[in-house]
Simulated assay, not measured.
Amino acid sequence: MKWQGINEFVAVAEKQSFSLAAKNLKISTAQVSRQITALEKRLQIKLFYRTTRKVSLTQEAQLFYQHCRHLLDDLDSAEQAITNLQSHPQGKIKLTAPMSYGEQKILPLVNDFVALYKDIEVVTELTSHRIDLIEGGFDMAIRMGQLQDSSLIARKLTQRATYVCASASYLQKHGQVALISDLKNHNCLLGTHDAWRFVEQGKTRSIKVTGSIRCNSGTGLVDAALKDIGIVQLSDYYLQPYIKSGQLIPILEQFREPESAIWAVYPQNRYLSPKIRLLIDYLAEHLN
């Protein structure tokens, strides 16, 4: 409310004409006149001496003009600063991601991103727990699978697949695995859960498995599989290099679950910060 009429007042003061001010502001002369009248009423002072040939400032208006001109200049500077920030993003991004996926996929890309955009600082917290972004002051999070929090905006970055693998030596020694039911005769390397998920005849099934090793480290489980200790079920980002090299053999492929999404999520905000948008775009482009 306090800004109402300021632009019109400054324009008339500088142009010394209501019609020229209106032309400059691209509004009608009547609208300029109404705004000035309302401003005079609110301030309870006369701002202009008006004749048919000239418009000039009153003594009180001259002082008011100096302050208003500074205010508009500061507003222009503020808008320019935001424009510069849009074209040259800078500042801090606070990010959270799952521990293992963050270590293997997100952090290397974040490091590349920071090296590329030297005026952006990224603070990353890796955790296996789901964090409240607002409460924790996080700008964004990397989340996997089905999303639960509808108050967040999500963008799909990539997909992940889950594989069941074993070494060729293990399979040669302990026998091939053709059916899900064959797993009961094998040493299954366990993470935090003792059930593995498969799709059989179009339905998802959770199958309880047992084995001699249980740990919450995917890297540790991969190491055990490479040492011919047993069979492992893990996300592709753990297994891809070893599948590609032939050190681990995918099995039960016909029962593998469909790929699930990996998301960037962030609090609802009408205007997404340019630096955060830039990071999300970078991750979407480089994750595979």
Rank of each mutant, 00 (worst) to 15 (best):
I6M: 09
E285T: 08
K275Q: 10
I134R: 14
Y238Q: 03
P267H: 02
A61P: 09
D132Q: 10
G102Q: 01
E285Y: 04
S128R: 12
L72C: 05
L179Q: 09
H88V: 07
L107C: 10
A11W: 05
H67V: 13
Q254R: 15
I106D: 00
M140R: 10
L47M: 14
Q35R: 14
K54M: 02
Y266D: 02
D73T: 14
G175S: 00
S151H: 13
N269H: 13
K244P: 00
A38I: 09
Y237N: 01
R130I: 13
E79L: 15
Y266N: 14
R34V: 11
I106L: 10
P241L: 03
V122S: 11
Y117W: 15
I207F: 09
A261K: 12
L43E: 13
R69D: 07
I142F: 05
G137I: 06
W263N: 06
E200A: 11
L20T: 08
V55D: 00
L252R: 09
M144H: 01
Q62V: 11
K118V: 13
D119R: 09
Q172E: 14
V12I: 12
H186W: 06
G246F: 09
N187D: 13
R155N: 10
G218C: 06
I276T: 07
T52E: 15
G218M: 08
Q240Y: 06
A141M: 13
W263D: 01
S56V: 04
K173G: 07
L283Y: 00
T219R: 15
E257V: 10
P98L: 03
A154I: 03
T158Q: 07
E60K: 15
I120G: 11
A166Q: 10
D139Q: 11
K46D: 05
I180V: 15
G145M: 08
C165T: 11
T124I: 10
L189A: 07
I180R: 08
E14G: 07
